[in-house]
Amino acid sequence: MGLFLNIVIDGTAYGMILFMIAVGLSVTMGLMRVVNLAHGAFALVGGALAHWFQQDLGTGFGIALVAAIAGTVILALPLELVLYRRIYRMGELQQVLATIGLTFLFIATINLWQGSALLVIEFPQALRMPVDLGFRTLPAHRLAVIGLGFAIILFLWWLLDRTRFGVRLRASVDNRDIAAAHGINTDMVYLATFGLGAALAAIGGIMGSELLPIEAYYPLRYMVLFLIVVAVGGMGSILGSFLAALGLGILETAARYLLPDAATISFFAIVILLLTLRPNGLMGRV
């Protein structure tokens, strides 16, 4: 029973981090139809900025977190205006190539700026404190990550389903020309959505830095993992990404506890099985 609870708790925390990063990718890939392999780069930028604010400027965790998210968005918006706006119109392969090229530039830049060492982000005392759950103790920030994950999915549901912005976004995605003809400024909608995706990536990068450590090659190292979450969840589905991230997080954690020798193999075997049975993902629209 203790083992089971351990798997559930650790897997949920891991899954929430996957969700935070992958949901931004799901939004850009599913809603905006762009294969954005550079998505992990925004998580890297967020993490590197937070590290820089903490270590070199000496700010506290809270300020570093907010400033790093803001910094990532400030960097992402001009990129959308200059590059991504053209990338949306390209074919899939060109999108893959363009965003991989962009990823290389991000990696090289971060490498030049902060070096290739691990970029540690220190969590404040309150989040490092162990919390006693009865059957084991757990660093408080794992619980914070789990809570944050639920908060984000609620926020996204509210934003896309209950606000005017959500209506405009869904309209722009379904038919950009008709949406524009109805007076929706689709360029602005895309810009804002792209910024939102970048902000989510930055949050995930920073909060997840304990499990997925930040370093220059972060975007390439975890690119496949994030893409798998999106593919299994179904592109463009927030709930799908959430279920896929949680499921795969718990699955991988369980495999590491129970079958440490065959963890990677069983993880990918289940991914193959899931994608064969549901080629459009758990919640994917055809």
């Binding site: 893409l227 798998i228 999106v230 299994v232 193999i265 990918f268 193959i272 994608l275």
Partner: peptide
Amino acid sequence: GLTVIMLTIAVAAI
């Protein structure tokens, strides 16, 4: 589409 890409990656990873 994306599913093929993911599956090819998964086969190589296994």
